[in-house]
């Protein structure tokens, strides 16, 4: 691992200014993605700005038509939160299925969303539910936020403060995990809510999370598992790895979509 400067500011504003000043600075929250990358030499930030001492970012609040999840909420927190379990059970189920217990106890929603790993689970939930990502300076719709593998609309010195999920009429989550890494091979959230009927898929495409218009249209006319069971996605657009080649992965997208609707 290369040497780096470590900062632990006490406020979002201080974090932003440290990021602005740092040479190749990077925000770290739970560190579940960034630290392994640094250990492997695949990331070598010059300055690490920890949000660990920033208070007020780890709450979950019921805002009526929305659930607001602070950026530093861990996956375990979201999975266990009564508000989430009652109002968006699909989101709690999704959080409960991330990684393993250690990862869920350290990893944060803000980190997951900012990292935008093509196999991370949260991007699918954000996109399907039509979430809003709040930062130190603005609010970004999920539709405008995820711009491709490991690529988001965030600026270099921008810090996520919360993610707001509109409460859907119904939503379901189904994931087929990689047997070794437990990352999604195909993870699908299907939702019927304020943002309309949406189907968002993670883990399956090298471009990161995506929506399936044909499934959404089928569900809009009838929100039933059978509506999506016959809708396939193109194998050509799929990732291919040890756990799943493109055809198997495309097939799993359909199966997971069907199961997500069943869960909804």
């Amino acid at each position: 691992m290369e040497d780096f400067q470590y900062h632990a500011p006490g406020s979002v504003d201080a974090a932003v200014s440290l990021l602005r000043d740092a040479e190749d600075g990077k925000v770290v929250a739970g560190g579940m993605s960034l630290l392994p990358l640094m250990k492997l030499g695949l990331a070598a930030p010059g300055g690490l700005v920890s949000l660990g001492k920033v208070s007020g970012l780890d709450g979950i609040a019921d805002r009526g038509s929305e659930i607001e999840v602070g950026a530093l909420c861990t996956h375990a927190q979201v999975a266990a939160a009564e508000i989430v379990r009652e109002r968006i059970p699909a989101l709690a189920a999704m959080a409960e299925g991330i990684g393993d217990a250690q990862v869920r106890n350290r990893g944060t929603i803000g980190g997951s969303v900012a990292h935008n790993d093509p196999a991370a689970d949260y991007p699918a939930a954000c996109l399907a539910l039509g979430a809003t990502i709040a930062t130190d300076r603005r609010e970004i719709a999920a539709d405008d936020f995820f711009l491709g593998m490991f690529f988001t609309a965030l600026e270099e010195d921008e810090v996520i403060t919360a993610v707001r999920f509109p409460v859907p009429t119904r939503a379901g989550w189904a994931k087929f995990p990689n047997p070794a890494s437990k990352y999604a091979v195909a993870g699908v959230m299907a939702a019927d809510g304020p943002a309309g009927v949406r189907v968002a898929v993670t883990g399956a495409s090298g471009d990161g999370v995506f929506r399936v218009a044909e499934m959404e249209a089928a569900l809009a006319s009838s929100f039933e598992p059978a509506s999506v069971a016959g809708v396939s996605v193109s194998a050509e657009a799929m990732l291919s790895d040890d756990a799943a080649g493109p055809e198997y992965r495309a097939h799993l997208v359909t199966v997971m979509a069907k199961r997500a609707v069943e869960e909804a």
Binding site: N178, P179, A180, S181, D241, D242
Partner: peptide, 23 residues
């Protein structure tokens, strides 16, 4: 059911971490 060590044709190990070797 789970474990398999594979190599690429050029002899590079294809399953050299717990990310893709399933214990």
């Amino acid at each position: 059911l789970l474990e398999e060590c594979r190599y690429e044709d050029n002899g590079q190990p294809a399953t050299a971490s717990f990310m893709n070797y399933t214990m």
